[in-house]
Amino acid sequence: MHQPLAVQPQVTSNSTDVLAIANSPILWVCVAGVFGVIIIQSVIFMKAARRAAPSVDMSTQDIKTSFRSGAVSAIGPSLAVSLVAIALLGLFGAPAVLTRIGLIGSAAYEVSAASIAAGSMGAKLDDASYTQSVFAVAFFVMSMGGAMWMLATLILTPLLRKGDAKVRSVNPAAMAIVPAAALIGAFSCLGLSELPKSGIHVLAFLVSAAVMGLCLLLARKFSKSWLREWGLGFSIVIGLIAAYLAASPAIGA
């Protein structure tokens, strides 16, 4: 931070100490800002809901029940998201993980966006090419992606509220096929791209995929939806344990 400006770019941009800049105080201030905005929004919405409730036959008890139901049902998913977020701390640092994976976005999209962004710079997130510059670009692109979601919401919600015919008359067959094709296409390309990297990558990939498959199967068979929520967390942890066991001779652990 206090180096002469002329020297700074060359010194820092090739540094692979990503966590050093990923934990900068300004990023923490932004995390606090996002937390604050969500808290303020929730307070305003709660007050508005309380005011409107009597007119639609909703008692104070109904409001309490709704709030408590929402809170209780969020405990499991929130802890599951926290587990995934912790697993990604080493890669992105706490501020980026809190705002991107914890809030606003979700692990699937943000990790994909970061991976694609790094790829566009000819870099990877998991080797020496992951420099501070690559992290900065990846974080910028993740945040821009989130911003686009919010922008779409800001533009489309008023239109949908008015029941805009144009928005609703999208070809139903296209709506059924195109988004699903985009998602499965993106995730299958990103997933398969991990395989040529090393044998341990293949192992981690297969173990994680198997755990997720098992979780979803058991969730359906015994209708335990918590297994679906925890699937991603379990897959990551068990996949990493497999990778650790396979890699430990090489890294001297």
């Binding site: 990790v111 998991d126 990939f205 173990v207 994680s208």
Partner: peptide
């Protein structure tokens, strides 16, 4: 440090594999 290193090296394939299975299912 070895655990942190393994996490950084191999967290991507685990996330992406699980997400792919989720998306397909």
């Amino acid at each position: 440090p070895s655990v942190l290193l393994v996490t950084r090296l191999y967290v991507l394939p685990t996330v992406l594999a699980a997400v792919l299975v989720q998306a397909v299912v």
